[in-house]
């Protein structure tokens, strides 16, 4: 059987399994196209890269991303640490603390990194962050799993993956237990950029709230607001919403461009 024929048969089988698992046709098409492109760029057959098609389809359909084995409970005596960082510095911080042996188990609803460090382990960890829609998250995980990446959480459109540094450097990456840094005192790493954004939001909300209150109160002769005023409110709200949406989109693109992968180093 030719390589091309084998590849086609694999993706036909994958598509059939995805459909039988209830995936919409658009999703089937996009997943198959992306994984086929990836295989086209690699030297391996799809079976070698992703394992059996049925298994991959089950993972993509559901609910458990490839490589996302149920995290075993940390060993007794493991250090636990819950910390957080904003998206401007999260990659830098994750890799800094990963180099000190901190393994992120998951990201909670508040965006905090639930981490631990095994007492006997000498593993260093490296992390990558991708900007990806929820529907594409499992596809991304399947695509990068052959390079040793395992998912360790997500928050909004940010997807996080981890792998032991030993995957690329072997025993040379082992931690020296004698020089193991203590658990950092700080657990919150927010930058000035984040605080500036929050301050802008608070000031804007305060100003608009005050003006609205003044316009509708007796002091501001707001008895009987004119239709024009209401129209002004509506236009202002629509404009504000449009600007906020544009800025969020720009921020997302900025975070996407700022993604740094250890493999690129």
């Amino acid at each position: 059987m030719s390589e091309e024929h084998t590849t086609r048969a694999y993706f036909d089988e994958l598509a059939a399994h995805l459909r039988s698992n209830g995936a919409p046709e658009a999703k089937v098409t996009s997943v198959v196209a992306e994984l086929r492109d990836y295989v086209g760029e690699s030297d391996n057959a799809p079976q070698t890269e992703f394992g059996p098609a049925a298994e991959l389809a089950a993972q993509l359909a559901g609910h458990r991303a490839p490589g996302a084995a149920d995290a075993p409970a940390p060993e007794p005596g493991a250090q636990r640490w819950v910390w957080t960082a904003d998206a401007y510095v999260d990659q830098e911080m994750m890799n800094r603390f990963g180099a000190q042996g901190w393994e992120i188990e998951r990201v909670d609803r508040l965006g905090r990194f639930i981490s631990h460090r095994e007492p006997r382990s000498t593993l260093r960890w490296e992390y990558r962050r991708d900007v990806v829609d929820r529907k594409d998250r499992a596809t991304l995980t399947a695509r990068i799993a052959p390079d040793g990446w395992e998912p360790c959480g997500h928050w909004m459109y940010l997807a996080y993956h981890k792998r032991p540094l030993a995957a690329s450097t072997g025993p040379a990456a082992a931690l020296d237990k004698g020089e193991l840094p203590k658990r950092p005192r700080r657990s919150v790493y927010f930058t000035r950029k984040l605080y500036a954004g929050l301050l802008t939001f608070v000031v804007a909300a305060a100003v608009s709230g005050t003006l609205t209150w003044y316009a509708t109160s007796d002091h501001g002769s707001g008895q009987g607001l004119s239709d024009g005023t209401y129209a002004g409110f509506a236009c202002g709200a629509a404009l504000g919403l449009a600007l906020a949406t544009r800025n969020l989109h720009r921020m997302r693109e900025k975070f996407r461009r700022a993604s740094r992968y250890p493999d690129d180093a």
């Binding site: 084995a69 995290a71 075993p72 382990s121 593993l123 040793g148 032991p164 030993a166 995957a167 072997g170």
Partner: peptide, 14 residues
């Protein structure tokens, strides 16, 4: 043998 995670496999390989 089930799914072996990187945190289990690489110490063994090392």
């Amino acid at each position: 043998l089930g799914e072996i995670r990187g945190g289990t496999l690489y110490p063994v390989l090392n």
